[in-house]
Design a binder for these strands. Structure first.
Lengths: 214, 214
DNA sequence: TTGTCAATTGTCAGTGACTGTCACTAGCCT
DNA sequence: AGGCTAGTGACAGTCACTGACAATTGACAA
């Protein structure tokens, strides 16, 4: 268990190096302007080896994102069963924002993760991939929520519907965070809470009179 | 106005032929297994010419989708201002499903459009592109909704939030329609209504007891 | 009608992501 | 020590896409 062997350790080091170098290059020069050859050369492996570690150039850009997503799923699964689905998802997101630092920190500084996230949102090809990954995530989450509530996802559409609405708001949150000026973890945490609070009221018809302002 | 000239007509014919041939090949052999060279050859133009009509192989796969999206935006803009944002979006979707036949029919049979939609949903690369397109669409719709309600999208997050939730549900609808057996326009229309009815209740916490079944 | 202009197209060469193959090297295990 | 095998590099090939330039062909005026 504690002795991974030289071979394993070497692989892990290569993998981490590829991620680190790739993200560094992506965030400084831009994703499109960075070639796989360039990354491979910087780590001193062949291009072919890069593609043995990552199925595509895209995949390496999502290496950190994957960690965060897993963190969220773990957090959701850990929520007490008394919580309704919405509170559970909401609290899981907030909890995973808190835990993100530790989870990422072992590979790269958190700041690089945030820059990486901004890059994903602003690069069309990566945004597309991100959204597809998110939709796979939605499926996972819907199943989790259904299980919590003792429902069958394939017979009852409500879990998927609720999750879709929830994730839609989360996506807007990420977007708005990227557009803003306060690019800190605290900022995105605060936005998450604020936007989710708007979801219920936003469904009602009468926006003009009362209006939860801002 | 009525005389587009030989040059224009020729271009239009080439464009239509490329779309038709491409969709036919995509839906029979699959998107990935169809090369651009193959499409170009079938229409008897050079590969270079294909790329003068479509910026990418993906783009031609979304040619019909674009028409439908425009139809929806038109329908939404045409909704009476008394309708609340949700009713307006809901009715616009339903109306555009009704109008889709006419809009598409001029290029290809509707059945090909439906097959094409299924192909998009089941091809990872196209699904990703589809979701990105959808997110651009969300932005457009959010602005439209905000205008209807006399709000500023950049100051008030509610339009975007509402639209995100709505579009999330619409995406689930499309997905579930694809998984089902009744692949008709009527079926997707019915699903649209049913799923949207679930959105409000799905946000509340108590799913187990009352439960709008199915 | 004819000649000129400009739009459209084909050809060619090149880049970059990705894949299959095969020989080779280096940890691992007995 | 020596065989086994995972991991790697080198090489060739496919496919999407782009820039440059030359050839073609409608459009339109003289």
């Amino acid at each position: 268990m504690s002795a991974p062997g030289l071979r394993e350790r070497k692989k892990q080091r290569t993998r981490d190096a590829l991620i680190k170098v790739a993200l560094e290059l992506f965030t400084t020069q831009g994703y499109e302007r960075t070639t796989v050859d360039e990354i491979a050369e910087a780590v001193e492996v062949s291009q072919r080896t890069f593609f043995r570690y990552f199925a595509s150039k895209e995949e390496v850009a999502f290496a950190l994102q994957r960690i965060v997503e897993e963190e969220f799923v773990r957090a959701l699964a850990a929520r007490p069963p008394e919580e309704g689905p919405f509170d559970a998802m909401r609290n899981a997101v907030l909890a995973s924002w808190d835990g993100v630092g530790d989870a990422i920190h072992e590979v790269v500084p958190v700041e690089l993760y945030l820059r990486n996230f901004l890059m994903i949102e602003s690069t069309p090809a990566l945004l597309a991939a991100h959204l597809r990954r998110s939709s796979e995530m939605e499926e996972t989450v819907a199943r989790l929520v259904a299980r919590r509530e003792g429902l069958d996802v394939d017979a009852d559409p409500r879990p998927r519907i609720a999750v879709a609405a929830f994730c839609g708001v989360m996506r807007v949150t990420g977007q708005m965070w990227g557009k803003g000026t306060d690019r800190t973890l605290e900022a995105i945490r605060a936005l998450t809470e604020r936007y989710l609070d708007h979801l219920g009221p936003a469904l009602s018809l009468h926006w003009r009179e009362p209006g939860t302002r801002d």
